[in-house]
């Protein structure tokens, strides 16, 4: 994919790290503030899509990173279902909140909820980004 102009590149260089960190923040604080794994994952995917759109990429790189994001998506899904199965193994109920509740409003509280948010964030971010990469790869196939 071809990149964009110098102005867009410069602004994106400044801004893209903040977008990425904001997505991670939304994911990690899902049990305290509005947001959560889904919203944070979409923001992270948006930052990655912005990078591809602005700086451009080679078709070979796109294929490589598509395979990598597919692995990440599967890891997120397995992590989520692993947390659910851990509840089944440890306490006998699927999706039981088996970890200690902690003090409310602390970052490490609410048992399994932050870990579920992280798993969903990885899954959604990687999933949307791999959809974008698959759609971006089509162009070269049609053109060739």
């Amino acid at each position: 994919m071809k990149g964009m102009s110098l102005i867009v590149r410069t602004i994106t260089t400044v801004i893209i790290g903040f977008i990425f960190i904001y997505g991670i923040y939304i994911t990690l604080h899902g049990h305290l503030t509005p947001g959560g794994g889904f919203a944070g994952g979409v923001i992270v995917a948006g930052a990655l899509i912005l990078r591809i759109l602005v700086f451009g990429s080679e078709p070979a790189d796109e294929k490589k990173s598509e395979i990598r994001t597919s692995i990440f998506e599967s890891v997120g899904a397995l992590l989520f279902i692993g947390i659910a199965l851990a509840g089944l193994v440890i306490a006998g109920t699927f999706f039981l909140n088996f970890l200690p509740k902690g003090i409310p409003f602390n970052l490490l509280s609410a048992g399994i909820i932050p870990f579920c948010n992280i798993a969903i964030g990885i899954k959604v971010g990687a999933g949307l980004f791999s959809i974008f990469l698959a759609l971006a790869a089509v162009k070269y196939v049609v053109k060739d």
């Binding site: 049990h31 503030t33 959560g36 909140n97 409310p104 609410a110 909820i113 948010n117």
Partner: peptide
């Protein structure tokens, strides 16, 4: 019940 401050996440 869950210790999470965000009710939607709970």
């Amino acid at each position: 019940g869950t210790g999470g401050a965000n009710l939607v996440a709970d």
